[in-house]
Computed example of a mutant assay.
Amino acid sequence: MKATQDVLRVWRKFDQHPMETITKAWYASQSGQNKQRSVTLMKEHREQFGTAGNCFDLALWLMDELKAEGIHAYAIGHDLHTPEAHVAVVAVNDEGNSYFCDLGDQWIDPILITRNSSDFCEDALSGFITGGKISVQVGSNDVLFKYIRPSGKVSKQKFNLQPIPLDELQSAASFSQSLLRNPLVEMRVYTPEEVIHWEFDRWNSFMSSNSGLMNEPKLIDDAQWADRIHLMSGIDREVICKALVIYSKKG
Rank of each mutant, 00 (worst) to 15 (best):
K2D: 14
A3W: 14
T4N: 10
V7L: 15
L8I: 13
R9Q: 14
V10P: 11
W11C: 15
D15S: 11
Q16I: 10
P18R: 11
P18Y: 15
P18F: 13
T21H: 14
T21I: 03
I22G: 07
K24C: 12
K24F: 07
A25C: 05
A25T: 06
W26Y: 15
Y27V: 07
A28Q: 11
G32R: 05
N34M: 08
Q36A: 02
L41F: 02
K43R: 14
E44I: 07
H45M: 15
G50A: 11
F56R: 03
F56K: 11
L58A: 15
L62G: 14
A68H: 12
A73N: 02
D79H: 08
H81S: 03
P83K: 04
A85P: 02
V92F: 00
D94Q: 12
D94K: 13
D94W: 00
G96W: 02
N97W: 01
F100N: 03
G104L: 05
G104N: 04
W107A: 14
I108M: 04
D109A: 15
P110S: 06
R115G: 09
S118L: 13
D119E: 12
F120P: 09
F120M: 09
S126A: 11
K133R: 15
K133F: 03
K133G: 08
Q137W: 05
V138T: 02
S140G: 01
S140K: 12
L144S: 09
F145G: 08
Y147E: 05
S151T: 11
S151M: 05
K156N: 09
K156L: 15
Q162T: 11
P163D: 10
D167Y: 07
S171G: 06
A172L: 07
S174C: 04
S176V: 03
Q177D: 14
Q177I: 04
L180T: 06
P183M: 05
V185Y: 08
M187R: 13
Y190V: 09
Y190G: 01
T191K: 10
V195A: 08
I196W: 05
E199L: 12
R202T: 12
N210I: 06
S211W: 12
M214D: 14
M214K: 12
P217D: 07
P217L: 05
K218Y: 13
D221S: 07
D222Q: 06
A223N: 04
Q224L: 06
A226W: 00
I229A: 01
M232H: 02
S233I: 00
S233Y: 00
G234N: 00
G234P: 01
D236T: 00
L244A: 00
L244W: 01
I246M: 06
